[in-house]
Design a protein around this nucleic acid. Sequence first.
DNA 1: ATTTAAATGTTATAATATAACACTATGTAA
DNA 2: TTACATAGTGTTATATTATAACATTTAAAT
Lengths: 129, 129
Amino acid sequence: MHTLSKNQQIIFDIIDKSPEPMKAYSILFNVQKKGIKAPLQVYRALDKLVEIGKIHKIESRNAFIACQNSSCQVSKATAFSICESCEKVTEINNSSLSKYLSNFKDKAGMKYSKYNLEFFGLCKKCTTK
Amino acid sequence: MHTLSKNQQIIFDIIDKSPEPMKAYSILFNVQKKGIKAPLQVYRALDKLVEIGKIHKIESRNAFIACQNSSCQVSKATAFSICESCEKVTEINNSSLSKYLSNFKDKAGMKYSKYNLEFFGLCKKCTTK
DNA sequence: ATTTAAATGTTATAATATAACACTATGTAA
DNA sequence: TTACATAGTGTTATATTATAACATTTAAAT
C-alpha cells in the first residue's frame, strides 16, 4: 500500500471531499492556504494520484474525482456517467461492463491494457425537470 | 446532408488527410497559408465538425481525427484504440461493442444518449519491437 | 427583397499544463 | 550510519489549449 506524501494527501483530501469533479486550478485555489502555491505542485500530485488509482481524470471535463471503488488500486479500467445538464459525474461499477470491456479484442487482435469510458445523458433529477 | 462552409471544408480536409490525430494549433499552423489566422476560426470549425460527426475528438489527447465510419452522421457513440507507444489512433467499428454500450443501463436506470470509449495498449507493430 | 440564422474576422484573454533547475526528504543496502 | 538512489518539493518562467466579446459578412428561408 502507498503512503501519500504531504502534498498528495492534501490534494487527495480536497478532491475526496468534493461532491463534484474538481479542476486543477480550483484545487490550487483551495490549497493555497495550506502552502501549495504553484500549479506544478498540484499537477505533480494529480499525476501521482491518477497513477496509483486514488483519483481519476474525467477527460471530457479536464477534472478529477476520487475513486469510488475501494478495491481499485490502479486506474486501468474506468467508466463514468456524466449528466450533461447538471454535470453530475458518477463512477460506474458494473462487473458485466468491466468484464465485457476488459475482454474486448478488436479485429486487429489488439488486446488492451487500459480503457476509459464516458457515458453522457441526463440524470434522474434533470430528466424530470 | 450538410454542406461544409469554406473554413469547415479547409479544416476537415487537412484532418482527413492526416494519418494521425491533429491538434488544434497544428491545424492552425497548417491552414495559415489558406487565410485562417486565428485559433477561434479553427475551434469554431472543429466544434461544428464534431457536432455533425465528420470528425471526433480524442479526449485523452486533445486531438481530432476524421470519422472513419462513413455511415456515421452524428457523433454519439465513439470508440477508439490508442497505442501508448506510437500514438496511433484507430476508430473502432464493432457492432457487438456498440450494441452493448448503446443498450447499457446503470443501476440508477439512467439511459445514455452518448458515449465515448478510449482503449489503450500497444499496437501490433509496437508489440513486436 | 427581407429577414433570420450561420459563419467569419479580429483582438484580447482565460484556462490548462509542462520545462528546467535547485533543493530536501525518504527508503534501502553496504 | 553513511552513502546512494529514488521520490517529492519549491520556484520561475513559459507552453499549450480554449473562449469572450464584438463587428461584419454570407447563405438560407420565407
